[in-house]
Design a protein around this nucleic acid. Structure first.
Length: 875
RNA sequence: GGGCGGUUAGCUCAACUGGCUAGAGCGCCUGCCUUACACGCAGGAGGUUGGGAGUUCGAGUCUCUCACCGCCCACCA
């Protein structure tokens, strides 16, 4: 085969080679196993705002591991990749870029030219994202790559809108929304970025209209007083009770506003009197509704004060704030100014302060859609892993508010609504031309709604809009509902909940049965990775430095259930070292096993492999079976850490540290059973490795001389264990370790040849039979029964005592060590005796626990006695 | 103000329904380039499981409580 395999695994070469081959040969294309049960996963489409970060990488890896594993189990896998246009986010990024590079605003370009700019951006970043996914080894069906603004998904958006419209679940209305004055659009609650800021709490006097006295209010946003339509106090507040119902003279604008009583006012905060601005504050909006207060809007869409602001009209809101404070101060109405820390909502995208503003928007009624989504978890048709996220999902759904789906943007799906001259709206899947008759009124259409839809209005359809819906395509019936969704906790309600709602509403079934919520990737000291902190670790750099397989394996190893994942670059050494270990183990096997041996064994295609053979052959196969079972069970429970660890310790511990070492003398003697076993186990390792380290797996199966892609090999079945072999080898390992410890304790260098080691054991026949296994790894020429002649180094591992002749000057230290061990052993024995002497224990504990304790006592006694004997022997 | 997670070796994390002497990787110490691998080999040190109380024959694991840390939700102007 390849006798000159390099000493270290060359990840780069393998990655370039197999990424290309897989795709060229359509290895991951769905539909190749029409008779098999499908397994369907939709990749959460990354936003085309920028390249992928480590969180995306983790998400891709956890999906790919499952998907590759299921494929090996014979499922007809569809893992569908794609990207999301991410409406507001992408528009904001592109707008910022245009301004920074060309000093151009979107309005300077006009809608069409601006959209062209965004499409160009999308092409660039969409391609980069898909490239990155490939570089990670993701086994997506690339032929199905989708984009939320592709033709079919876009049509799906319009069909869904019209459907909801016809059902009366879509409505248009003037509501208070979060307004971004830079983007000049409504933004969703989820598009806010709450920041703690140091501000002020200004106390202003509002005189009563009759000139008798005043009320002092406290506010953090003085300029909004221009839109005040009341002042509210708590009805139980004795200070103000008598004044409720009186009118105040709103300073500066001189509007008469009432003093009202409202339960929601906290008497302990500020002055206990709050100004009410229904047009610019969410709490006040609701108070206004309750008390039927007028709404005065004082802002233009760009954040300047409008005509309702009287003398302040035209000023930016920040300027107006300063001036309002100054003017009130001049009039003697500023009582005092306190420092005050509060949370300021910023627009996630433009980073400008959000202004609550009343505007006409489109909404979706959520309550009826939420009900089936709630039932889905109650009826166990949908489960979260880890389970606790179910609560987050349910809490949101039970308190769900109507969804503002319109955005005053240019990037996205334009709302499919047209108007006649009277402003009567008509929703339509197909375009209504200007001048065409209105479907309801028959009057000519005069315009289309300018707004676009919230980006989630397309992503909530993703599990089926990518499969051809609304057409009843074969794809749709085969791959809907799908199986698994892997995503981040931040979008459990933004996206997961909405997908479930859409699934029920449009297809009557939830889009998946399992939702795996990823760990959040943090930096080495536990902070979120973010651009502004500059503490991100770029997956591309890590792949370059350590290899994709190493990155994948490391992420899995670190992904303990539900724990956040603290990451430092050096962590990837774990994966790299393991890949190298596997590589070298394979290199050893391939270079030492003769060609004839290879042909006769080691079928990685799942054949049962060699039977019989030596004790160690039976043992390693039993350990292999244990590993197969452990990895399989861990994957079934999405326990990536457990799966990775089981594989790691089997390969590194059982196989490399013991079996490979034992195989060396046997291979020199051309032992065919040994060669066959090495190849057999290596074949299993390749298959177990495949989901985690697909590139290395392909390299190794090629080196093993197999034609079939590792990615398409059958997943190994866990054969029977051999408890007898495992027990016996464990004895031998203990003895070997004992001899090694004596050597190390006495500074006997590994190179120093020791003619013989002595073993005092109740079962000399067993060790006579297997003395080669001990001698080879213990570094002794021969294993002899009995005790070594004096002086000697001794190690007790009851019922075995190992000894090696030593020079006399080392004996004192040896005695000290044994005394220490004796002390420990006696302590242990005492604690066991104490336990067994306690009647409450022997009567109340389970019988098998008591029995186990009795056995432990016997073992401890043996250990103590043997140590005493050893000490006596040393004199 | 509510909810959820976390606190175990110097660091990062494990430990199924309570039950062998609480494990791993990294780091540290000792000795080794032993012809697969120094991205390696062998051996070792290191823990009153955040504090307190309780339940139990038995608690890292269950209950209560206190203390920190993190995340999410909520209209304190």
């Amino acid at each position: 085969m390849a006798p000159d395999l390099p000493k270290t695994y060359d990840a780069k070469r393998a990655e370039a080679l197999w990424t290309e081959r897989w795709e060229k040969d359509g290895v991951f294309a769905a539909g190749q196993r029409p008779e098999a049960e499908p397994f369907t996963v939709m990749l959460p489409p990354p936003n085309v705002t920028s390249v992928l970060h480590m969180g995306h990488a983790l998400n891709a890896v956890v999906q790919d591991v499952i998907v590759r594993w299921r494929r090996m189990q014979g499922r007809d896998v569809l893992w569908l990749p794609g990207t999301d246009h991410a409406g507001i986010a992408t528009q904001a990024v592109v707008e910022r870029r245009l301004w920074e590079e060309r000093r151009v605003r979107r309005k300077d370009l006009g809608r069409e030219a601006f959209q062209k700019e965004v499409w160009a951006w999308k092409e660039q970043y969409g391609a980069a994202i898909l490239r990155q996914l490939r570089e990670l080894g993701s086994s997506c069906d690339w032929s199905r790559t989708a984009f939320t603004m592709d033709e079919n998904p876009s049509r799906a958006v319009r069909v869904a809108f019209v459907h909801l419209w016809e059902k009366g679940l879509v409505y248009r209305g003037a509501r208070l929304v979060n307004w971004d004055c830079v983007l000049q659009s409504a933004v969703g609650d989820d598009e806010l970025d709450e920041t703690e800021v140091d501000g002020h709490l200004w106390h202003f006097r509002y005189p009563f209209a009759d000139g008798k006295g005043h009320i002092t209010i406290a506010t953090t946003r003085p300029e909004t007083m221009l839109g005040d339509t009341a002042v509210a106090v708590n009805p139980s507040d004795e200070r103000y009770r008598v004044h409720v119902g009186r009118f105040l003279d709103l300073p500066l604008v001189h509007r008469k506003i009432p003093l009202i009583a409202d339960e929601t006012v906290d008497p302990a905060f500020g002055t206990g009197a709050v100004k009410v601005t229904p047009g610019h504050d969410f709490a006040d909006y609701e108070r206004g509704q309750r008390h039927k207060l007028p709404i005065v809007n004082i802002l233009n869409p760009d954040g300047t004060i409008n005509g309702n602001g009287g003398p302040y009209a035209g000023l930016d809101r920040a300027v107006a704030r300063k001036k309002v404070v100054e003017d009130l101060d001049r009039k003697g109405l500023l009582e005092r100014t306190e420092r005050h820390r509060f949370t300021l909502p910023l627009s996630d995208r433009s980073k400008s302060p959000i202004e609550p503003l009343v505007s006409e928007q489109w909404f979706v009624k959520m309550k009826p859609l939420a009900e089936p989504a709630i039932r889905a978890v109650q009826e166990k048709r949908l489960r979260f892993v880890p389970e606790r996220w179910t609560k987050v999902y349910l809490d949101w759904l039970t308190n769900v508010r109507d969804w503002c789906i319109s955005r005053q943007l240019w990037w996205g799906h334009q709302i499919p609504v047209w108007y006649d001259a009277d402003g009567t709206p008509a929703a339509s899947v197909e375009e209504l031309r200007i001048g065409a008759p209105h479907p309801a009124t028959g009057k000519p259409i005069v315009r289309r709604d300018e707004d676009v839809l919230d980006t989630w209005a397309s992503s909530w359809l993703w599990p089926f809009s990518t499969l051809g819906w609304p057409e009843r395509t074969p794809d749709l019936s085969r791959h809907y509902p799908g199986d698994l969704l892997c995503t981040a906790r931040e979008i459990i309600y933004l996206w997961v909940a909405r997908m479930v709602m859409a699934g029920y509403e449009f297809l009557g079934e939830p889009p998946f049965h399992t939702v795996y919520i990823n760990a959040t990737v943090l930096d080495a000291i536990g902070r979120r990775m973010s651009k502004s902190l500059g503490n991100g670790i770029d997956p591309r750099d890590m792949i370059k430095q350590y290899g994709a397989d190493a990155v994948r394996f490391t992420l899995c190893e670190l992904a303990t259930e539900g724990q956040d994942l603290k990451l430092a670059e050096t962590k990837f050494e774990l994966g790299r070292n393991f890949m190298n270990k596997v590589w070298n183990a394979a290199r050893f096997v391939l270079t030492s096993v003769s060609a004839s041996g290879k042909a006769s064994a080691g079928d990685p295609g799942g054949a049962p492999g060699a039977r019989g053979g030596e004790l160690e052959d039976r043992w390693i196969r039993s350990r292999r079976n244990a590993a197969v079972e452990a990895v399989t069970q861990a994957l079934e429970g999405y326990r990536y850490h457990d799966a990775a660890t089981a594989l790691y310790h089997f390969v590194w511990g059982d196989f490399c540290d013991w079996y490979v070492e034992w195989s060396k003398p046997r291979l020199k003697a051309n032992d065919a059973a040994c060669a066959a076993t090495l190849l057999d186990v290596l074949g299993t390792i390749v298959r177990l490795l495949q989901p985690f380290a697909p590139y290395l797996a392909e390299e190794l199966r090629t080196a093993l001389g197999h034609e079939e892609y590792a990615a398409l090999l059958p997943w190994p079945g866990a054969g029977a264990r051999d408890p007898e072999a495992e027990r016996q080898i464990a004895e031998i390992q203990g003895v070997v370790t004992g001899f090694r410890t004596i050597r190390a304790d006495n500074r006997i260098p590994p190179g120093a040849f020791l003619e013989a080691g002595f073993l005092d054991t109740p079962d000399p026949a067993f060790f006579e039979r297997y003395k080669a296994l001990v001698a080879a790894l213990a570094g002794i020429g021969e294993l002899k029964a009995g005790s070594a002649p004096q002086p000697c180094g001794t190690k007790v591992l009851a019922p075995h005592t190992m000894s090696i002749p030593l020079s006399a000057d080392l004996i004192e230290a040896e005695k000290t060590r044994i005394r220490g061990e004796l002390e420990k052993a006696q302590k242990l024995l005492e604690s066991i005796e104490r336990k067994l002497a306690d009647e409450r224990f022997t009567t109340r504990a389970k019988p098998e626990v008591v029995e186990r304790e009795r056995q432990r006592k016997v073992a401890a006694e043996e250990q103590v006695n043997a140590l005493k004997r050893a000490l006596e022997d040393l004199g």
